[in-house]
Amino acid sequence: MIRALAFALMLAQAAGAETVPEPSDYHGEPYRSAVPATLAGAEVIDTDQAIALQGQGRAAFFDVLPRKARPEGLPEGTIWNAPVHETIPGALWLWDTGYQALAPAEQARLRDAMTQAQADHPDRLLVFFCRTDCWMSWNAARRAIEWGFDPVIWYPGGTDAWVAAGQPLVTAEPVAP
């Protein structure tokens, strides 16, 4: 059943991705919409390839899905706990680093994480993901390419395809600002 769902998800992704051209710049709202099948300068991988890379330990995985913000308008004194974020085992959660435009703090967090990942291994693969049909990972991977990082890998299936393939997620802690 899970394999059938994963296959259906792959087919849906492939069908939608074929009709979306790569934009000439970063993509803004809506961030959850069909994405292209390519990213110039990056290798695009599927779930089987992501599973293999994660198991080999040759790649740094970066989850760029945003953090949930405290809802506006909550009465003063209301206790609010951010929801738990789950990600691929071993991935760094670089929240808010996949938007069309980044504040200096997000740029620094993204650049520092990639630099640190390749510090002792300059050829370490940098794998970017979020969720299926999410432009955040495409934007972050494109930014890495423009900043001169290499090799850059984009995993457009993200955590949705990972789970559909029967793979576990773990609770993530956001990388500190």
Rank of each mutant, 00 (worst) to 15 (best):
L39E: 00
A4E: 02
L126E: 10
A82M: 01
A37Y: 00
A14Q: 07
Q107R: 02
E173M: 07
A82T: 11
I79G: 08
E72K: 10
D46H: 13
D96Y: 10
V20G: 10
W93E: 08
P75S: 06
R109A: 12
G77P: 11
A50S: 07
I79P: 11
I145T: 04
A50F: 13
D150A: 07
A105Q: 00
V152G: 06
P21K: 14
Y155N: 06
R143N: 01
W154K: 12
Q100C: 09
Q49D: 13
R131Q: 03
Q100L: 00
W80L: 09
Q116F: 14
W147V: 05
R142V: 06
V175R: 13
A52N: 02
T19D: 12
R32E: 12
V127R: 05
D63H: 12
A37D: 04
R109V: 13
V64E: 03
R32I: 15
A172D: 14
P36Y: 09
Y31E: 04
A165C: 10
S24R: 01
P83N: 14
W93Y: 11
A101V: 15
A119S: 04
P89M: 01
A141Q: 08
N81V: 11
E173D: 14
L169Q: 00
R131T: 10
P23H: 11
R124H: 01
A161T: 01
E29F: 10
Q116C: 11
T87D: 03
R109W: 11
A176F: 04
E22D: 05
Q13G: 13
V175P: 02
D112L: 07
P21L: 13
T78S: 06
D160L: 10
C130K: 02
D48T: 12
